[in-house]
Design a protein around this nucleic acid. Structure first.
Lengths: 204, 204
DNA sequence: CCTACCGATCGGTAGG
DNA sequence: CCTACCGATCGGTAGG
C-alpha cells in the first residue's frame, strides 16, 4: 500500500520532470513559473510541492537526466572496438542521436544548467568533465596510433566535436529530411576526415 | 542645447545597452530584473524608463547589435577575393573573432533572441537568414568550382560551420592560450579540410 | 491535492 | 532622475 502510494507518487514526479523538461526548454528556467508547470499537469501551483522540494531541484533533475543519457551513450562508444576514427564516429553519432531523441532534456542540459546554484552545478560540472574526457581519450589514442594528424591538438578537437554536436537542437526539427543517424554520420564524416593524416586518407 | 541633452541621453542609453548585454548574458533575460539593471548603473529602477520603452526593447537592442556585428564581418568575407576555401576560412575566422570580441552581445544574440515576441523576433530572424545565406553562397561556389566535395551538401556544411562557431562562447575565456585569430584558423583548417576534394587536398 | 495565505519582487507609470 | 505607487505574479508554506 505504501508501495502503491509510492508508485503513484513517482509516476507523478516523472510526469512533472517531463513537463519541466518541455517547458524549461521552450521558455527557459527563469521564464517558466510554477504556475505554468501546474497548468501543464492540471494541478494547482502549491500542490506541486507534494512531489518536489523546490523549483531548482526540478531543474537539477532534468539536467542530470540529460547528463546521464549522454554519459551512458558515450561509455558505449568508448567501449566499442575498431580504430580511433571509428570510435570517434560512433561517439559523435551517439551524441547527436541522444540530443535528438531527448531534445527537451538535452536542450535544458546544455542551456539552463548554468542557473543551478553552486553545489548542484558542480555536480553537473563533474559529469560534463567526465564526458569531455571520453572524447579526449579517443582523440589521444588516434594521434598516438598515427591515425590522426599529430598537430590535431586533442583538446581542440574535443571542442570542435562538442560544438558541432551541441548546436543540433537549434535547427533540428522532427520530420526533417535527415534522421538522427544520417545527421550524425555526416557530421562525423566531415570532422573525422579533418583529423585524419594524409596517409590514412589515401588508404581509406 | 537639445543637441547636448540628446547626446547625454544617448550616452546613457549606450551604457544601459552595454550593461544589459553583460547581465543578460550572465543571468539570462528572464533572470535579469530592471532592478539589476538599475543597480548596475547606479539608478533607480523606474528611472531607466527615461531611456528605454521597455525591457523587451532593451533585449532587442542588444540582440540587433550582435546581429549587425556578425553581418558586417560576414559581408567583408563574402566580398574578399580568393578561392572558396579561402573565403570560407575568412568567414569562419571573422565569425569567431566577432563572437569573442563582443562575447556578451554575441551570447545574448545566440541564446536570448528567442524570448523576443513575434514581431521583433521576425526582424532578427531575417538577419539570421541573411547571414546563413552568405555561407551558403560560398559553399555552393566551392562545390561548383570543384574545390569542395560534390557530396558536401551546402546546407549541411553551413550548419556545421555555424555549429562550430556558435559554441565558442561556451568555453572561450579571455587570456587563454589561444587568441581569437588562432582559434578561428584552427577551426577553419579542420572544417575546410573536411570539405575539400581529394584532388584539392593533394595539390594543397 | 486544495484553499488561503506569506513576504518579496516583478515590469511599468504618474507626477514632479 | 526620484518618490511613491499600480496590479500582477513570484516561489513557497501551513493546515487541512
Amino acid at each position: 500500500m505504501t508501495q502503491v502510494a509510492e508508485g503513484t507518487r513517482s509516476a507523478r514526479r516523472a510526469e512533472l520532470i517531463g513537463a519541466a523538461a518541455r517547458l524549461f526548454s521552450e521558455r527557459g528556467y527563469h521564464g517558466t513559473s510554477m504556475q505554468h508547470l501546474g497548468d501543464a499537469l492540471g494541478l494547482k501551483r502549491g500542490s506541486l510541492y507534494a512531489h518536489i522540494g523546490s523549483k531548482e531541484e526540478l531543474l537539477f533533475d532534468v539536467v542530470d537526466d540529460g547528463a546521464e543519457r549522454f554519459l551512458a551513450r558515450g561509455a558505449e562508444a568508448l567501449a566499442s572496438t575498431g580504430t580511433a576514427a571509428d570510435r570517434l564516429s560512433t561517439f559523435l553519432i551517439g551524441h547527436i542521436e541522444t540530443a535528438i531523441e531527448h531534445l527537451d532534456a538535452a536542450t535544458v542540459f546544455l542551456n539552463e544548467w548554468r542557473y543551478l546554484s553552486d553545489h548542484l552545478r558542480s555536480v553537473v560540472q563533474a559529469k560534463r568533465d567526465h564526458y569531455e574526457g571520453m572524447i579526449g581519450t579517443i582523440v589521444t589514442e588516434g594521434v598516438a596510433s598515427g591515425e590522426f594528424r599529430s598537430d590535431a591538438d586533442a583538446r581542440f578537437a574535443v571542442l570542435l566535436v562538442l560544438s558541432a554536436g551541441n548546436w543540433v537542437y537549434e535547427w533540428y526539427r522532427p520530420g526533417g529530411r535527415l534522421g538522427p543517424q544520417e545527421i550524425g554520420e555526416k557530421f562525423a564524416d566531415l570532422i573525422v576526415s579533418g583529423l585524419k593524416t594524409k596517409r590514412q586518407k589515401g588508404s581509406a
